[in-house]
Design a protein around this nucleic acid. Structure first.
Lengths: 348, 348
DNA sequence: GTGAAAGCGCTAACAC
DNA sequence: GTGTTAGCGCTTTCAC
C-alpha cells in the first residue's frame, strides 16, 4: 500500500509547531495568530496538502459520501435523475457512490446487506420492481438518513420524492379522450409498485370521469421495457373482443414498444390507434410517429432528492417530507387522430 | 453526528477479551482458537457488526472506493460502460464514486483539484472533449493508479482501454463502399480527441484504399450530439458542389441527426443517401429507417477498465496496458441502396 | 495563542 | 493463543 499523502504532521514538522496548531490554522479557528495561520496556509498550499478523508471520517463520524441505490442507469429517466443527484451532491461537497440493482430484489437485498454503511452519511433509494417486503430497508433507515425517489415504498417512513403519477396519468388519458379516442387501454409495470398503482388509478379515474369503460380487462401489467410494451400491445389486440383505439403506456419505452407492435400489425398510429407515454425520453422525438407523453422532471427529482437527503444529514431531527413534482403534457403525432398519413415521407 | 455503529470494542467487552483477539477472529487469522473465534463470530453476527470503513481506510491506506470521471451518463454508451464498471467493482468489493464533468474541461479541472484522492484507491477516466492539456492529470497519475477509457490521452502514460476506432471506421466505410456509395462524407467530433482522429484515419484510409476521393472538405468536426449531427449534415449539403451520397457519423446520435436532416431535405435515406453510425445505441433500431452502425463493446470496455484498474491497485508494479476491443458491423436499412421504398409502411 | 494528550476503530508488532 | 501497545491522520479537550 504505497499511498502516502502530505499530512498535518508534515506541515507541523516543517514549521516546528504542533499538529494541533496546524489543524486549527487550517480550519480557520479563531484562537490562532494571524502570522501562524498564514505560514501554515502557505506551506499547506506549497506542499499541496489535502486532508485525509478516512481520518476525518473516523473522527467526525461523517464521510461526505452518499449512496445511491437504483435499478438501472441505462435509460433516460434514471441517468438524468443521477445527473441531478451528482450535481447537487458535488456542489455541497459530497460524493455519490453508485449501486445498481439491475431491478433484481435479490441483488437489492444482497447489496443492502453488504454495503458498508459506515462509509455513507446517507442513502438515496429507488426500489427495484419486485421488492416484496421492505424489511431489509427498515434496518438501514434506523441507522442512516434515507430518502426514496421515483419508486417509493408505501409502508416505510422517510422522505419521498416522486413525480405526480396520478395526475400525470389523468392528464395523459384526458388528452387521449380530448383527441377523440374512446376505448383506451393501459400497458403498465409491475402491479405491486406504488408508482404503477398511482398511474393506474389516474387512468381509471379519468375514464370514469368521462363515462368511458374502465376495466382491468384492458390493462396489462408487466415490466418497463420496450419489448414488454410490444408484447402487452399484442396481447391486448389478441384478447380483447373490442380492440382499443388508444393505449396509455406507463413509460415511453413501453409506448415505443406499442408503436412498433401497432406498426407491425399494419395499424396507423395516431390516426387509427393513439399512443401516449410517460417520461419524455428523447426517443419519443425519434420514433415515427413521434410519441406524445407526460414530461417528467427527472433532473429535478434527482436534485430535490439529494437536497432533502443533505437536509436530513445536516439536521437529523428534520421531519420526513413527501414531495410531488408535477409533469407536463407533450402533444405529438402519436395522438393526432386528424392528420392524414397518405404521404409516408412525413414520418420517415 | 449521531452515527454510531457496533465496534470490535463492543464485542471485546461483551466477551471479556481483547480487541486484538476480536480483530484476529474476525479476519480468520490462524493463531486464534476455534472456540474463541466461534464466540466472536456469533456475537458479531448477533450484534450485526460491520467493520468501520474509515478506520480500515486509515490503517490500511485503502478505502475500496474507486473514482470514475466521465463526461456524461445520459447516453447509451456511457451509461452502459458505467454499468460494466460498477458490476465489476462490486464483485470485487469496491465501490464506485461517480464524477460527471458535463464534458466541460473547466469542471474536469476543478473536479480533479477538489476530489479527495485519499478517499480513492484508483481512478477511471474518460476525458472531456476539449481537454487541451493533460497536466492536471499528471499529478493524479503520480499519486494514484489511473486507467483511461474511450476518450484517452495520447500523451500520458497509463493503461488505456478503447474500442477499435480505426478498424471500426474502416469497416463502416468499406461497408458503405460495398453497398455502392461513392461520395462518402464524415461528420465527427472535436478534432483534438484521439478517438476522433482514429476514426477519421480509418475513414480516410478506407477511401484511399478503394480509390475514392478522400478530402477534408467532406469532413465536419463538431460535438457528439444529435443536433450537431443535424447541423453538420446541412452544412455538408450546403457547402459541397457535389453532394455526398453517404455519411459516416462518428456515433449513432449524430447518425440519427443526419437521418433527420436528410428526411427534412426530402432525401430518401438508404436509397439516395446512405448513413452509418458507430455505437449500436438502441436508438438506431428505433429510427426510420433503422441505422446501420458499428457495435461497440460498451459493457466490456467498462468491465475491462475496472479489472485493469483493480489489477494496478492490487499489484502496483503492474505495467500499463493498452487494450483495444473490436466492434462489429451491424447492417440495417440506412445503408440499403437497393431496396425500393414504395411501401413506406415497411419503415414506419 | 499554543502544545500535550486522548481518542475515533482498527491492525500489527511484540510480548508472554 | 491472547493481551498490550503503538500508530494510521485528525480533532478536541485541557493545560499553560
Amino acid at each position: 500500500m504505497p499511498k502516502r499523502f502530505i499530512t498535518i504532521k508534515d506541515i507541523a514538522r516543517e514549521l516546528k509547531i504542533s499538529v494541533a496548531t496546524v489543524s486549527r490554522a487550517l480550519r480557520n479557528t479563531y484562537d490562532v495568530s494571524q502570522e501562524t495561520r498564514e505560514k501554515v496556509l502557505s506551506t499547506a498550499a506549497r506542499l499541496n496538502y489535502r486532508p485525509n478523508a478516512s481520518a476525518l471520517g473516523l473522527v467526525q463520524r461523517q464521510t461526505h459520501n452518499i449512496g445511491v441505490i437504483i435499478p438501472s442507469i441505462t435509460n433516460y429517466y434514471f441517468s438524468t435523475v443521477i445527473t441531478g443527484i451528482q450535481e447537487c451532491a458535488i456542489k455541497q461537497g459530497y460524493n455519490i457512490i453508485l449501486y445498481i440493482t439491475n431491478d433484481l430484489p435479490e441483488i437489492e437485498k444482497k447489496l443492502l446487506h453488504e454495503i458498508s454503511l459506515s462509509n455513507l452519511d446517507g442513502i438515496l433509494v429507488c426500489l427495484s420492481s419486485q421488492s416484496g417486503s421492505f424489511s431489509h430497508f427498515q434496518k438501514i433507515i434506523d441507522d442512516l438518513p434515507c430518502v426514496f425517489f421515483d419508486r417509493v415504498p408505501d409502508s416505510l417512513e422517510g422522505s419521498k420524492i416522486v413525480q405526480d403519477d396520478y395526475n400525470g396519468a389523468m392528464m395523459a388519458v384526458e388528452h387521449l379522450i380530448a383527441c377523440g379516442y374512446q376505448r383506451i387501454a393501459h400497458i403498465t409495470g409491475p402491479e405491486n409498485l406504488l408508482l404503477t398503482r398511482k398511474r393506474l388509478n389516474g387512468y381509471l379515474d379519468a375514464l370514469e370521469k368521462h363515462n368511458l369503460r374502465a376495466s382491468y380487462e384492458q390493462v396489462r401489467f408487466s415490466g418497463f421495457s420496450q419489448k414488454e410494451g410490444e408484447n402487452d400491445t399484442i396481447s391486448l389486440f389478441k384478447d380483447l373482443d373490442q380492440t382499443p383505439d388508444a393505449i396509455f403506456a406507463v413509460n415511453d419505452r413501453k409506448g415505443v414498444g406499442a408503436i412498433i407492435s401497432l406498426r407491425n400489425m399494419g395499424i396507423a398510429v395516431g390516426k387509427e390507434v393513439g399512443v401516449i407515454g410517460f417520461t419524455n425520453d428523447p426517443i419519443s422525438e425519434i420514433i415515427s410517429p413521434r410519441l406524445s407523453t407526460i414530461a417528467e422532471p427527472a433532473y429535478e427529482i434527482g436534485k430535490m432528492s439529494c437536497e432533502i437527503l443533505l437536509g436530513h444529514i445536516k439536521k437529523p431531527e428534520t421531519k420526513p417530507q413527501e414531495i410531488i413534482l408535477s409533469g407536463d403534457l407533450v402533444k405529438r403525432e402519436s395522438t393526432m387522430k386528424g392528420i392524414e398519413v397518405t404521404d409516408c415521407r412525413k414520418f420517415l
